[in-house]
């Protein structure tokens, strides 16, 4: 298959998904609302002490993000699987792995991007300091691809299961642990760096590991997800 037609095919796939999500407005909005709900509940659970909130803000943001992610993952392949679109897509000359990649990209655009945009507002609720917020956003940009690609594996394996959402959460949770560790680690060490007057260091090890996880997700995610989809489609 020629390069041009594959790129065109990908683009049309992504556009279709993004347009569909924008029309329905469910996925991304749901994630954002859930994100906001979790963050808002935090002070009620932990008390309004602004120092405490400030300290835990990066961690809470990432936890809320992961939970919101889990919420939207079961819809990643479900709709197209159920209405037969995937059966048709497998007939196309575009490899399934590339199709999965396209789906992950559109999922990121419709779910992760809105979450990213709302983060500064919610960070203010938790009294986050500006430098930490900056680093949180950086980790979000670098780390959310990992969440999407790794999540796709869980979504693909359980696509035939009714109400597979909770199962996905159970399957994916161990895979998300390293992402959270490195993301929050990056923010905390950025705080230390700034306190020491060194400024934001972008070659900081936590960030590098986080980027490695995203790249790793990019490499393995579509592969494993396509394998999972294939066995569910057969």
């Amino acid at each position: 298959m020629s390069q041009v037609s594959m790129r065109k095919g990908l683009r049309s796939l992504i556009l279709r998904d993004v347009k569909g999500a924008a029309r329905q407005g469910t996925g991304g909005l749901q994630a954002v609302i859930f994100f906001a709900v979790v963050i808002t509940l935090v002070p009620f659970g932990l008390g309004p002490d602004t120092d405490l909130l400030n300290r835990i803000a990066p961690g809470m943001i990432w936890i809320a993000l992961v939970l919101s992610s889990l919420l939207t993952l079961d819809r990643l392949f479900q709709v197209d699987f159920e209405d037969g679109t995937f059966d048709l897509l497998t007939l196309s000359p575009i490899p399934l792995e590339v199709i999965v990649l396209a789906k992950c990209l559109s999922h990121w655009l419709t779910n992760a991007l809105p979450l990213l945009l709302v983060t500064p507002l919610l960070g203010i609720l938790l009294n986050i300091d500006l430098s930490a917020l900056g680093m949180v956003l950086v980790t979000l940009v670098i780390g959310t691809p990992a969440l999407t690609f790794i999540g796709a594996i869980g979504a693909a394996l359980t696509v035939g299961v009714r109400r597979g959402g909770l199962l996905i959460a159970l399957l994916i949770m161990p895979l998300y642990v390293p992402v959270v560790i490195f993301a929050v680690g990056a923010v905390n060490s950025a705080r230390l760096n700034i306190a020491n007057g060194e400024g934001l260091i972008f070659t900081e090890p936590n960030l590098l590991f986080l980027a490695a996880l995203s790249l790793f997700g990019l490499a393995i995610g579509p592969l494993a997800a396509a394998a999972g989809l294939r066995l569910n489609l057969s």
Binding site: P174, L175, P178, I181, F182, F209, A224
Partner: peptide, 20 residues
């Protein structure tokens, strides 16, 4: 598939938890 992915992840988790 899950088992293989989990095995790779087990290595990563061990490393990241040590780090953490």
């Amino acid at each position: 598939i899950l088992a293989i992915v989990g095995s790779i992840n087990a290595v990563i988790v061990k490393f990241s938890v040590d780090w953490w």
